[in-house]
Design a binder for these strands. Sequence first.
DNA 1: GTTAGGG
DNA 2: CCCTAAC
Length: 768
Amino acid sequence: MGATTPSGPTTKPRLPYLRSYHRLLRWPSTTYVSLTINVISHGKYPTPFAGISVFYGKSFELCKKNCCVEGLISWFCELGQPKRLDYGFIGYQVPPMPRATRSARKRGTFRKRTEDNQMCAFDLLATVAGNIWLEKESSPTSSNTSNEKNGCAFVQKAWENEDKPVKIEPSFQESSDKRVLVSELVHQAGDQNFSYRESPLPQNDVHSGLASVLTTECSEVFVAEKLVNGENNNEMGSFTSNVDLGFSGYRDSGNCKLDCENKLIIKDDLHKTGKVPIGIGADMCSLEDPVVCDGRPPALVSSDSSVKVPLCGDHIPCSSFPAIRDDVKIVSRDDDENSSGCTHPSTIAKSSRPVSRIADRRIRKILASKYWKVSSKLKEETLSNVDGDLKPIFRNRKGYYKRQRSQMNIPFKKRKIFQRSSVSNSDRWISYGGNSHSTEKGINGDDLGSCLKMHGASGTSSSLVGQHTSIQSRDSYVKLRIKSFRVPELLIEMSETATVGSLKRAVMEAVTSILGGGLRVGVLLQGKKVRDDNKTLQQTGIAHDYPLDALGFTLEPNPAQNPPPLCPRDSSCMLPCDTPQPLTRYPLDSTVVHQGDSHASPELHAANLGTFIESDHDSAPSPTDTSVDKSTTDSKALVAVSAMDVDELAVVPVHRKLKRSEMAQRRIRRPFSVTEVEALVQAVEKLGTGRWRDVKLRAFDNAKHRTYVDLKDKWKTLVHTARISPQQRRGEPVPQELLDRVLSAHAYWSQQQAKQQLKQQPETCLLL
DNA sequence: GTTAGGG
DNA sequence: CCCTAAC
């Protein structure tokens, strides 16, 4: 496939790095995430993959496991797009791979972890915001891209064959009369043939479709502080991942239940399409004419691709990576009031949540800003974006049928977050099903809406947003419609002096904590769990004429990878209880308690955002970490950071010992002693500045915790200290005699350096 | 991997 | 002490 157009390095300032994402929870290995690629543009990363696809508003289902950023990139490359991929999030950029130390490379652990981290970043977006925002960056070679990074682009014309360039145009439309292109990319299995078609559609609100809940104009890194579960601090109690998606009237008595209102939605007009196999969490789906547009801008597009996926990195196969469903249909947006049959989620979401009210009060008290409003809205609307992200778990294992669709429904700006709460981003009919052979249309159904709530083990109720499920039958066809999943309610308590940004981070972290836990879908019939996945809908009794209110869905922890040691009975009630909550404390005196368990460590406090690096020393980007003495202290600095073990996701003892390797930490501060200073001064006097490695070897070879960077830094501070008045100095006083030597040594070697440079200048001039 | 420098 | 860039 073609690849090419190596775009030159761009001089454009980089976007801020998305930091701290690696502190987010790790995801379970078998879950999938949905991603929507908004913009892919020239990347500045010298990835080994030359060609990159451009997908706009295209959503993917990715297996979290064995998936990484590099894999995504490479996958795009395989599609032969003539662009490079620059990846990042709304306003953020995924940090490049940190450097690995030799030992890490030897062990082969570094890369994997790094990739995990990067993928976490994707996860963050995909799960929470629902989008991966690939920032467009201008590059010398990008000629027909007029929009800058705050703009999104549409693919106006895509590859009909590999050789055709992709045309990118800014999508500035915000009004409904604008049009959005819906493109479809069909990828035939086996061969890499693509056919592309596009069709203009009226666009309602670009933003809503891809609403990224947590994105704001001022992009920030979102890291939560503490989550509060004001009401119940159950020990295990953190979030339960059990979500009941049941229809109204039904409640799962066992665990977490939800109040649900139901609405039935019928869509008749949808069926221009062909068949639709349906299956929830099922494996395969095949269909023939998956995409349906009822004339409204589709919110999300799904793509399929059983495209062969390259390995990510050295050790991580990403074959599962583009496990994309090919069967997603885009129907219409719900956010459109007029949209037929679609119930506004907000109306659905109203369920009684006593606890939440308390929380609301609390928060409201704290922040009266508009952002607050937004956050409070979380429980009702905002996070609905998650909607397609959690729900569909489609994979095409067989991959015999490959098809890909892309749609352009792209917000042209970073979505102002709360601007439009989401209501629904999208309505898509995803059809798939085992052996189903759909026939035609003919939809019947009643409106059913359901509200989902998620109850924390602690008793906190969480809301699952408007889930709209409509079951429709045509012939023997059952159609379910899940509008969106709502993020469980979060309780956050913050100081009044906390910044809005910190609030956002707190919300973000809370959300990701929950969603990162990994969920599976459970089906309930008449209140009973349907455990046999192999039964057909028909056998199970789910038919088009089946009483819809007897059918429900639950989101529960995925036991497959999460052996429930502590909760043998029903793991569904204890999802991420122990989820290693990213308990980050912020300098601001916010107090957030993550349901029941919080172990914010002082170090975390100090670390604040963005300073966490790979927990494994060897994987730390900074060489300084390589010398950290492993018998020493690392442990305490790292508590809560991404402690989640993939394999023990669902139920793990709350206080289980965290693996060291899982903890990202900042090294603890170790002030230099006078003795050390003396040794340093002496070495520098001898060796001069600029030879820190030698200094290290000479004077600190045995001090594993002192890296040459440390020494260099110390020297820097020593010089500074020596220059300021004694009154201004802090910490253990350094003898003046030493400081004097510092100054003189510094002066001497600076002079030497200057001389050296003068010497070299003529030489270079001569050379030139 | 080192070095330099900003934070 | 962290992070990044430059080499």
